[in-house]
């Protein structure tokens, strides 16, 4: 799962002298240095509004930093052109959003395959379809592939979002509150699925969460409130 021109020892995520501010707000994010090694499973915790989601969006290249370096898999995302950045994100990063962000006019299978429908360099093949079926079966949605996502429960939607993040077998998985809307049983199931799939793929997992119940299973925990102390 290594990208072109990278070495196994190279961190998958590298932030350096990162600064970010939303225009016309007092919000400021500053990270002097942070790295996540390949294959590690890291949780980022912190109070609401501290910038956890912003951090994920910066790592994914959805937001561009005001200053500093955002490196993912050896590529400087802050230097990539918009077109390259989007293509990189589609191929190399899998994201699970807090509010799932499924397309309501598509069914379960189509939502899982969405990165392939919209990715310029991605083509849907028999293998990809099979992978979608396997992922759906693994999260207990094998019999609902043709069901519209608006007819699913919150937990089921979360699982579809999870499958969509994993379908491209990305080396980096970013999950924003993946257990936010789930009951304890489903919470454990989802985290187990996410972690097992990440391990199987050799992928790096960064999870942003409020939920302290899931921290014990992670390799490392970063407290956003005490960022400098933990990270620095």
């Amino acid at each position: 799962m290594t990208g072109a021109g990278e070495t196994p020892d190279e961190p998958v995520v590298r932030l350096s002298d990162l600064r970010f501010a939303y225009p016309a707000t007092s919000f400021r994010l500053q990270i002097s240095h942070w790295e996540v090694a390949r294959g590690r499973q890291v949780a980022v915790i912190g109070p609401s509004g501290s910038g956890k989601t912003t951090l994920l969006h910066l790592i994914a290249g959805i937001l561009r930093p005001t200053a500093g370096v955002v490196g993912v898999e050896g590529r400087r995302l802050d230097e990539l052109a918009d077109r390259e950045l989007r293509a990189f994100r589609a191929r190399r990063i899998g994201m699970v959003f807090q509010d799932f962000q499924l397309l309501e006019y598509l069914d379960v299978r189509e939502n899982i395959l969405l990165p392939y429908y919209i990715g310029t360099d991605l083509r849907i093949s028999g293998d990809v379809r099979r992978r979608a079926d396997e992922l759906a079966a693994a999260v207990g949605l094998g019999d609902r592939m043709r069901r519209n996502v608006t007819r699913l429960s919150q937990g089921e939607r979360q699982r579809v979002a999870l499958c969509r993040a994993l379908i491209t077998e990305p080396p980096l998985i970013l999950a924003d509150e993946p257990t936010g809307n789930l009951d304890p049983v489903n919470k454990r199931k989802i985290m187990a699925l996410l972690q097992n799939h990440a391990r199987r793929l050799g992928a790096t997992l960064v999870v942003v969460t409020h939920d302290r119940d899931i921290l014990s299973a992670m390799d490392r925990v970063v407290d956003f409130a005490d960022w400098t102390a933990k990270v620095g």
């Binding site: 989007r86 589609a90 191929r91």
Partner: peptide, 20 residues
């Protein structure tokens, strides 16, 4: 707008969105 934002977050290019 939300749908377009999702497509963007998933790496959809502007040209692809326009084609859609």
């Amino acid at each position: 707008a939300a749908e377009m934002a999702t497509l963007f977050k998933l790496g959809c290019r502007r040209a692809t969105t326009a084609r859609l």
